[in-house]
Amino acid sequence: MSDFLRSYLTVGIFGLLAVVLVSALLGISSLLRPTRPQAQKYINYESGVDPVGSGWGQSNIRYYIFALLFVMFDVEAVFIFPWATRLEAYGTFGLVEMAIFIFILLLGLVYAWRKGVLRWL
Protein backbone atom coordinates (compact mmCIF):
# COMPACT_ATOMS: atom_id res chain seq x y z
CA MET A 1 0.00 0.00 0.00
CA SER A 2 1.36 3.42 -0.86
CA ASP A 3 2.18 6.03 1.79
CA PHE A 4 -0.66 8.15 0.47
CA LEU A 5 -3.29 5.48 1.10
CA ARG A 6 -1.69 4.54 4.41
CA SER A 7 -2.14 8.12 5.59
CA TYR A 8 -5.84 7.87 4.95
CA LEU A 9 -5.95 4.43 6.58
CA THR A 10 -4.54 6.14 9.69
CA VAL A 11 -7.36 8.68 9.43
CA GLY A 12 -9.87 5.83 9.40
CA ILE A 13 -8.16 4.16 12.34
CA PHE A 14 -8.32 7.37 14.35
CA GLY A 15 -12.00 7.67 13.55
CA LEU A 16 -12.41 4.13 14.87
CA LEU A 17 -10.32 5.05 17.93
CA ALA A 18 -12.81 7.78 18.78
CA VAL A 19 -15.67 5.30 18.51
CA VAL A 20 -13.80 2.81 20.73
CA LEU A 21 -12.99 5.49 23.31
CA VAL A 22 -16.61 6.64 23.50
CA SER A 23 -17.84 3.05 23.77
CA ALA A 24 -15.26 2.29 26.47
CA LEU A 25 -16.31 5.30 28.54
CA LEU A 26 -19.97 4.36 28.16
CA GLY A 27 -19.07 0.77 29.12
CA ILE A 28 -17.17 1.79 32.26
CA SER A 29 -20.00 4.10 33.17
CA SER A 30 -22.58 1.34 32.75
CA LEU A 31 -20.66 -0.75 35.30
CA LEU A 32 -20.55 2.06 37.85
CA ARG A 33 -23.85 3.85 37.52
CA PRO A 34 -27.13 3.02 39.23
CA THR A 35 -30.31 2.31 37.26
CA ARG A 36 -33.52 3.24 39.05
CA PRO A 37 -36.17 3.74 36.43
CA GLN A 38 -39.03 6.09 37.16
CA ALA A 39 -41.39 7.27 34.46
CA GLN A 40 -41.02 10.92 35.51
CA LYS A 41 -37.28 10.87 34.85
CA TYR A 42 -37.80 10.27 31.16
CA ILE A 43 -40.07 13.20 30.46
CA ASN A 44 -38.45 15.90 28.36
CA TYR A 45 -37.27 18.92 30.30
CA GLU A 46 -39.42 21.95 29.74
CA SER A 47 -38.61 24.28 32.64
CA GLY A 48 -40.21 21.96 35.16
CA VAL A 49 -43.74 21.82 33.74
CA ASP A 50 -45.17 19.00 31.65
CA PRO A 51 -44.10 19.35 28.01
CA VAL A 52 -46.72 20.74 25.65
CA GLY A 53 -47.12 19.21 22.20
CA SER A 54 -44.28 17.63 20.28
CA GLY A 55 -40.60 18.45 20.75
CA TRP A 56 -40.13 18.66 17.01
CA GLY A 57 -41.62 22.04 16.24
CA GLN A 58 -41.13 24.41 13.35
CA SER A 59 -38.23 26.80 13.32
CA ASN A 60 -37.39 30.05 11.65
CA ILE A 61 -37.04 29.87 7.83
CA ARG A 62 -34.02 32.20 8.14
CA TYR A 63 -31.80 29.29 9.18
CA TYR A 64 -32.66 27.46 5.97
CA ILE A 65 -31.91 30.50 3.82
CA PHE A 66 -28.56 30.98 5.53
CA ALA A 67 -27.78 27.31 4.96
CA LEU A 68 -28.51 27.76 1.23
CA LEU A 69 -26.25 30.82 1.11
CA PHE A 70 -23.57 28.82 2.90
CA VAL A 71 -23.64 26.02 0.32
CA MET A 72 -23.12 28.57 -2.46
CA PHE A 73 -20.23 30.34 -0.79
CA ASP A 74 -18.57 27.19 0.50
CA VAL A 75 -18.43 25.64 -2.95
CA GLU A 76 -16.85 28.85 -4.22
CA ALA A 77 -14.35 28.85 -1.34
CA VAL A 78 -13.31 25.36 -2.49
CA PHE A 79 -12.40 26.82 -5.89
CA ILE A 80 -10.17 29.44 -4.27
CA PHE A 81 -7.86 26.89 -2.63
CA PRO A 82 -6.19 25.34 -5.71
CA TRP A 83 -5.69 28.83 -7.10
CA ALA A 84 -4.10 30.00 -3.83
CA THR A 85 -1.53 27.19 -3.83
CA ARG A 86 -0.46 27.87 -7.42
CA LEU A 87 -0.59 31.68 -7.43
CA GLU A 88 3.18 32.06 -7.78
CA ALA A 89 3.18 30.04 -11.00
CA TYR A 90 0.21 31.87 -12.53
CA GLY A 91 1.40 35.37 -11.66
CA THR A 92 -0.57 38.33 -12.99
CA PHE A 93 -2.85 36.11 -15.09
CA GLY A 94 -3.98 34.21 -12.00
CA LEU A 95 -4.41 37.42 -10.06
CA VAL A 96 -6.72 38.98 -12.67
CA GLU A 97 -8.68 35.75 -13.09
CA MET A 98 -9.27 35.46 -9.35
CA ALA A 99 -10.08 39.17 -9.04
CA ILE A 100 -12.92 38.58 -11.53
CA PHE A 101 -14.02 35.44 -9.63
CA ILE A 102 -14.05 37.20 -6.26
CA PHE A 103 -15.85 40.17 -7.82
CA ILE A 104 -18.64 37.86 -9.03
CA LEU A 105 -18.69 36.21 -5.60
CA LEU A 106 -19.05 39.60 -3.92
CA LEU A 107 -21.76 40.51 -6.44
CA GLY A 108 -23.71 37.48 -5.21
CA LEU A 109 -23.28 38.60 -1.62
CA VAL A 110 -24.34 42.15 -2.45
CA TYR A 111 -27.39 40.80 -4.30
CA ALA A 112 -28.40 38.72 -1.29
CA TRP A 113 -27.77 41.73 0.91
CA ARG A 114 -29.92 44.05 -1.23
CA LYS A 115 -32.66 41.42 -1.34
CA GLY A 116 -32.77 41.59 2.45
CA VAL A 117 -31.78 37.94 2.88
CA LEU A 118 -29.06 38.83 5.36
CA ARG A 119 -31.50 40.73 7.56
CA TRP A 120 -32.67 38.80 10.60
CA LEU A 121 -36.34 39.46 11.28
Partner: peptide
Protein backbone atom coordinates in the same frame (compact mmCIF):
# COMPACT_ATOMS: atom_id res chain seq x y z
CA UNK B 1 -18.72 12.10 39.27
CA UNK B 2 -19.89 12.00 35.65
CA UNK B 3 -19.10 8.28 35.36
CA UNK B 4 -21.49 7.44 38.21
CA UNK B 5 -24.47 9.38 36.93
CA UNK B 6 -27.53 7.49 35.78
CA UNK B 7 -27.92 7.22 32.02
CA UNK B 8 -31.17 8.90 30.99
CA UNK B 9 -32.76 8.63 27.58
CA UNK B 10 -35.85 10.83 27.22
CA UNK B 11 -38.76 8.53 26.39
CA UNK B 12 -39.74 10.53 23.32
CA UNK B 13 -36.17 10.77 22.00
Amino acid sequence: KFLQKEDIFPSKA
